[in-house]
Design a protein around this nucleic acid. Structure first.
Lengths: 371, 371
DNA sequence: CTGAAAGCGCTTACAG
DNA sequence: CTGAAAGCGCTTACAG
């Protein structure tokens, strides 16, 4: 019933007939050339050329049990890190003869679960996920089908899945140490941890543990948790934090977008960065280097992570055992948004100086803009 | 040979057996329930539940000739417009029971051609492309296979493909009229047209035609064509344009990233926007509203385009004829980066005032930073 | 409305 | 190294 509208495409039988060999031999000549006599092999190749034959992957998939399709689920493509990662993943998989089935979960474990189910039904040969936090049914479901799986952007999995990524917690610990080294003691944090997100959670924990190692306690009202890491949320969080704690000297963000929002709002409120306040992000997306001042942040090697994930997965599909953890470097990129802490700040919001009426007006204007 | 590692999944035969019906009836109960007696239908449904049966899509695909997979090729996910578009496309297709095969061409027609070939081999039921500029083999190849196709981000195709998008040229014509209305007469343009890109080409033409309608000729050295629409390229182009023509009052960009780069470099050089210079972009990506000053731009309804593309394609696959052109509104979003032209400007680069040594230093620093 | 049977286009033990 | 044949798991004319 198949036969599409256009002219009927040639089948492997046609190739076999033209080459004067059996169907089986034609198949072998294409898939295991070393096993067939050179003369015959060439006759088949020729037939393939003259007929412009290309195999039907659906048939191939059904009879071989291999679809040569990989499924990847990322939280969102709205985050440039994932956008670039997916791009690199597709490229590398393409080079390896695989095509990429993509979907996005919007940070919703239930959606992710459904999408895993759909991919499995679709017959994917392997799957790429993000992080190590899943709906409880996800892993058993995949395991039951015997489909190889890798996870990305984290470097270790509590579930025994090969992971390729960075040590998020260690990276922010280092960043925080760096700020401590600059003399900062009054910190605030903006974290997109309101939705299930173990990468951001780990980043948050890294910050807190470094601070706690230095005997610094961060008050609950100095931590703002947001859902999506948008610039607008960064602005909003910034205002909240500064209102609650006018004397803070450093703001740590789990994502560049949040930090960019903080910078934008700082400018809006007349707070000088890094003179009055240091701001750091995480991700090192394109915009981070271009804002004013350029943002100090941590580089996430998304493309490299994705290429390695592709390689590991292809290897696993081939039956090889693959390393359980692959940790890539997450380098701290020091730019203009961080500096040593000043003895005496003089920001409009500093307690040492009353906030002027016009400043308050500006601030509330800023708040309105964000809502 | 298929049988995966884990426990063998139930097959439709198992369902049929358990329900006490034939394989054919089981199949019909699932795919054309209205054609089978209610009592039997329910028995089959039950069997499906107790066995946790899910059909093998590869087998389904082979026998029905329908894979329920859609292939989409976009230039890059690095552009937030495409990232959001792909996200929306995947969501809508998912709701319709289709999965999305994705690849990116990096604005290379040859790559696109290869990817089209791969998708076709993979047995996609339909394809989504971007724009109306393809390698010559692409369309015949798709047509020969009888695979439905739609194109996006343009509203008309010279090749008889259903198109869903905006009128790029008209949008920039309106933007240009708006600036003319503000009194601007000295224009420069940054266009990412150095790679094949008919959307940006159309935007460029819209600008030029509006200007020419008003008797304004844009000198060749007032147009910079770049390859990728990056912020860095926007900075670079800005310096080039301003050096060549210090008296210009408005810069039109075919993309927000380029405009954001222009804004960043303007700040860097001490040129005030919009006082000294007006800047407009195109796309209305998230960052456009957040830069300082907020960018005047044209909104591209990427999600809406993608959802409509999905709907049209699904409809075409079902055998319906679909509209050849679907034009969505591309609204001009006026923000803070544009204003009426001033009688006498006094930018550092204005001919009426010698450029100071320190300014030159800053400029060349700016240039260095971009390379 | 239901069943037996052929067929979708490949791959791959099984014999030679 | 090669061929005849069975099989992958579905769908769908074809008869009843």
């Amino acid at each position: 019933m198949a036969s599409r509208a256009g002219s009927i495409r040639p089948r492997l039988v046609d190739v076999a007939r033209l080459a004067g060999v059996s169907l089986a031999t034609a198949s072998r000549a294409l898939n295991q050339p070393e096993i067939v006599r050179p003369a015959i092999r060439e006759r088949v190749q020729e037939a393939v050329m003259t007929l412009a034959y290309s195999p039907d992957r659906m048939a191939k998939a059904l009879s071989s049990g291999k679809s040569r399709i990989i499924g990847a689920i990322v939280p969102t493509l709205g985050n440039a890190v994932f956008a670039h990662g997916v791009e690199a993943l597709q490229e590398r998989l393409g080079e390896r003869g695989y095509t990429l089935l993509l979907s996005n979960s919007q940070y919703d474990p239930e959606r992710e679960l459904r999408q895993v189910g759909a991919f499995l039904e679709q017959g994917v040969d392997g799957m790429v996920l993000v992080g190590d936090l899943f709906a409880p049914e996800v892993l058993p479901l995949i395991k039951r089908r015997g489909v190889p799986l890798v996870t990305t952007y984290v470097c270790a999995s509590r579930h025994g899945i090969p992971a390729i990524g960075i040590d998020n917690s260690r990276a922010t610990r280092e960043t925080t140490e760096y700020l401590l080294g600059l003399g900062h003691r009054r910190f605030a944090i903006v974290a997109n941890t309101a939705l299930p997100n173990d990468r951001s959670q780990a980043r948050l924990e890294g910050m807190l543990s470094a601070l706690s190692d230095h005997g610094i306690h961060v008050a609950p009202n100095s931590i703002v948790e947001v859902t999506l890491p948008t610039i607008a949320n960064g602005r909003r969080a910034f205002v909240t934090l500064l209102s609650a704690n006018p004397r803070l000297t450093a703001i740590l963000c789990t994502t560049d977008a949040l930090a960019v929002g903080a910078l934008a709002e700082a400018r809006n409120l007349g707070i000088r960065v890094p003179t009055d306040l240091s701001v750091v992000g995480f991700d090192d997306v394109e915009i981070a280097a271009e804002v004013d001042p350029p943002l100090t942040t941590v580089n996430v090697p998304a493309a490299e992570i994705s290429r390695l994930a592709a390689d590991r997965l292809v290897s696993a599909i081939a039956g090889n055992s693959v390393p359980m953890m692959t940790q890539l470097a997450a380098r701290l990129i020091i730019r203009g948004s961080t500096d040593r802490v000043r003895r005496r700040r003089s920001t409009p919001l500093d307690g040492s100086k009353p906030v002027s009426r016009s400043r308050i007006g500006e601030m509330s204007k800023g708040i309105r803009r964000m809502l």
